[in-house]
């Protein structure tokens, strides 16, 4: 049990929040609100699964918000050009994977520090996009774009199933598949992993490529909820995702954490913003409360570091 202390403390935090909401504002659990909250959280969860791999290998990627925007706009433009939806999805995922591979090459190939590399790509992609789109929405998309052309109800179901699918594959991959264990091995002791026959550089590169591809998936899952694409989309996504992953118990120093914890972390952060609306708290307190929750959730098991 002690191993999963963080997972438990965050679950307790989420339960407490949901309990308060159930008493004060039961409307939070209305079907439409719940569906919107969950479909909004789905892309974050998908990106967080990829981020978990990267953080497990003791790296970080702060460029995903910019990658997300590039993939969203690309998906929108492809849909507008009349490509069928499967090709749009494929294109966005391939684009994301390529962006991830670029980061991965710099980090794993050239051995540059990931935080700085992704800081650089974060600015570069965002500014390039701003330069080329100048803030203009991608409008007049084909009808088959929003909700995959399936209508709202079924479209939402597809989004949720997609995110859940990615999550479950991730859980099985990390737990049951040999290659999944490589990420933990490289993150906890690179040298030992190498001696055990793992190629740390290849694993690290793989983590960035998978993250990029998943960001592409997330971008599509998010974009199909709407009828047009805002090129500023994904601003601040990196903070949201990293906070969710870390709050969910993945150690920033690598090698420790589970996707179940990440799931709870994503849900906790996804509930805070709408919860504040339901609790009728003044909006100027929002950022302070968010910061305090992150610090509290992390501080709750901070003492653990001392004993080990």
């Amino acid at each position: 049990m002690k191993r999963y202390r963080r997972e438990l403390s965050v679950t307790a935090c989420l339960s407490a929040l949901l309990l308060v909401l159930a008493v004060v504002a039961p409307a939070f659990f209305g079907r439409q609100q719940l569906l919107t909250t969950l479909t909004a959280a789905a892309p974050v969860l998908v990106a967080a699964c990829g981020m978990t791999l990267v953080i497990l290998t003791r790296q970080i990627d702060i460029s995903i918000g910019s990658q997300f925007a590039l993939c969203s706009v690309a998906a929108g433009l492809m849909a507008k050009a009349g490509l069928p939806m499967p090709l749009v999805v494929l294109g966005a995922v391939a684009g994301g994977a390529a962006l991830g591979a670029f980061n991965g090459w710099l980090v794993a190939g050239l051995e540059l520090p990931s935080i700085v590399v992704t800081l650089a790509t974060f600015v570069t992609w965002r500014e390039t996009l701003r330069w080329s789109r100048e803030g203009e929405f991608v409008k007049d998309l084909a009808d088959g774009f929003q909700w995959w052309g399936l209508g709202q109800g079924r479209g939402q179901a597809v989004i949720l199933m997609g995110a859940l699918g990615v999550f479950l594959i991730g859980v099985i991959f990390l737990k049951k598949v040999g290659a999944g264990r490589f990420f933990y091995a490289v993150g906890s002791d690179r040298e030992a992993a190498r001696l055990a026959g793992i190629r740390p550089a290849a694993v690290t590169f793989g983590a960035f490529v998978i993250l990029g591809a998943l960001v592409g998936v997330a971008a599509v899952l998010n974009a199909v909820r709407f009828a047009d694409v805002d090129p500023k989309t994904g601003t601040g996504l990196e903070m949201q995702v990293i906070a969710a992953v870390v709050v969910g118990g993945v150690a920033i120093s690598g090698g420790r954490g589970t996707l179940w914890g990440v799931l709870v972390g994503v849900l906790l952060l996804a509930c805070i913003a709408p919860a504040l609306v339901f609790l009728k708290l003044p909006p100027q307190w929002e950022k302070a409360i968010q910061g305090a929750i992150i610090l509290l959730a992390v501080a709750a098991d901070g003492e653990k570091g001392k004993s080990s």
């Binding site: 990293i242 906070a243 950022k287 910061g291 992150i294 610090l295 992390v298």
Partner: peptide
Amino acid sequence: IVTLGSLSLFRG
């Protein structure tokens, strides 16, 4: 992590 949290907290 600490300063990520206090980033939100101070601005808030």
